[in-house]
Every structure is written in C-alpha cells, then in structure tokens.
Computed example of a mutant assay.
Amino acid sequence: MIKRRLSLALSLLWRTYVVFFLYSIAFMLVIGLPFGRLVLANRNVILYTPAVALLVFALLLAILEMGLRINLLRAIFGARLKRSPAQWRTSVLHLSALMAALAAVNALVTFSGSADAWMYYRTYPGPLLFFVGVFAIGWAQATSDVEETGTARVED
C-alpha cells in the first residue's frame, strides 16, 4: 500500500510540475512581451505576478475540468495511470484549491512583508509548499486493492 501511495504521489507531482512549468512559460510570454517595460520598471508588478499567475492557473484547472471536461494532468501521460475520470476530477479540483491557497499565501507575504521576505519565501518555503501539497494530494488519493476492485477476497 505504501508503494502504491508513493507511486501515485510522485506521478501526480511530476505531471503537475510539468503542466505548471509549461503554463509558467506561456504566462511569462503573454505578460513579458506586451508589458515588458512595465514589468521591469515597476518593482511591485514583479512582486504581485507570481500570486496572480498561481490564481490564474488554479482557475484554469478548475474551469477546464468543470466546464469543458479537459483535464490537463491526464493529458500529460495520464493514460498510464489507471484512474477513473472521477479520480482525475478529484485530483484536479484538489490541485486547483491548493494553487489558490498558494496564491493567497504568496499575496499575503507580498502585502505584509518586505521584498527580502518575499524573495526568501519564493526561494525556499514556496516551492516546498508546492511539493508537499501536491505530494499529499496524491498520497491521500491512493486506493487500496479492496477499493479498486470493489470486492474483498473471501478465504475458504
């Protein structure tokens, strides 16, 4: 059971990281190209951008799953994981909630702390919270053999 939980948690972690990395590149291109001078000229924009990016990512995951039935995590080699659509849906909605919470924490650090505190948060606790949160979601959603098959073995 621990091997299954660890496997699912790590599988969801790398898929989430790949999807978030691709999204971050697209977000930087969309913000950086048209608004490059504004971003470089104003220090506050640099501080607020990660919170906005995380919130937009959370909304993107939720809207695509709820409205269009497109699961971005399943699109990244998701067919290899034997999960039902309901399990994928639950994973994405939990990840969406996690990303919204990380955006709120990032905004809180930005508004209440100094630029040095924000930089420290973005370097160490921010990525650690991302890793631990996604890992915990995958760990909690691993099912046992009994739940997977729907029936328990009967010994004669």
Rank of each mutant, 00 (worst) to 15 (best):
A9S: 14
L10A: 13
S11F: 01
L12C: 01
L13G: 00
W14C: 03
W14T: 06
V18T: 09
V19A: 14
V19W: 05
F21R: 05
L22V: 10
L22N: 10
Y23S: 09
Y23M: 04
Y23W: 09
S24K: 02
F27Q: 04
M28W: 13
L29H: 04
I31E: 12
G32A: 08
L33P: 00
L33I: 13
P34C: 11
G36H: 08
G36F: 05
L38E: 15
V39W: 10
V39K: 07
L40C: 09
L40D: 14
A41Y: 00
R43C: 09
R43D: 14
N44E: 15
V45Y: 13
V45Q: 09
I46M: 14
Y48M: 11
L54F: 13
L54P: 01
L59C: 13
L61G: 00
L61Y: 08
I63C: 12
I63R: 12
I63W: 10
L64I: 00
L64S: 12
E65F: 01
M66W: 13
M66I: 14
G67D: 09
G67P: 01
L68A: 15
L68H: 11
R69F: 07
R69Y: 04
N71A: 08
L73I: 05
A75Y: 10
I76Q: 06
G78K: 02
R80H: 12
L81Y: 03
K82N: 14
R83K: 13
S84T: 14
P85C: 06
A86R: 11
A86I: 07
Q87T: 05
W88F: 06
W88T: 00
R89H: 12
R89S: 13
S91A: 15
V92A: 12
V92E: 05
H94V: 07
L95H: 04
L95N: 09
M99H: 12
M99K: 04
A100W: 06
A100E: 05
A100L: 05
A101E: 02
A101M: 10
L102N: 02
L102G: 00
V105P: 06
V105T: 09
L108Q: 06
V109Q: 01
V109P: 00
F111N: 04
S112L: 15
G113H: 03
S114C: 07
D116F: 08
A117H: 11
A117G: 13
W118P: 01
M119H: 14
M119D: 14
Y120M: 12
R122I: 07
T123D: 13
P125Y: 01
P125L: 07
P127F: 06
F130N: 03
F131R: 03
F131M: 13
V132W: 05
G133M: 07
F135C: 02
F135L: 14
I137M: 06
I137F: 01
W139S: 06
A140H: 09
S144V: 02
V146T: 12
E147K: 05
E147S: 10
E148L: 11
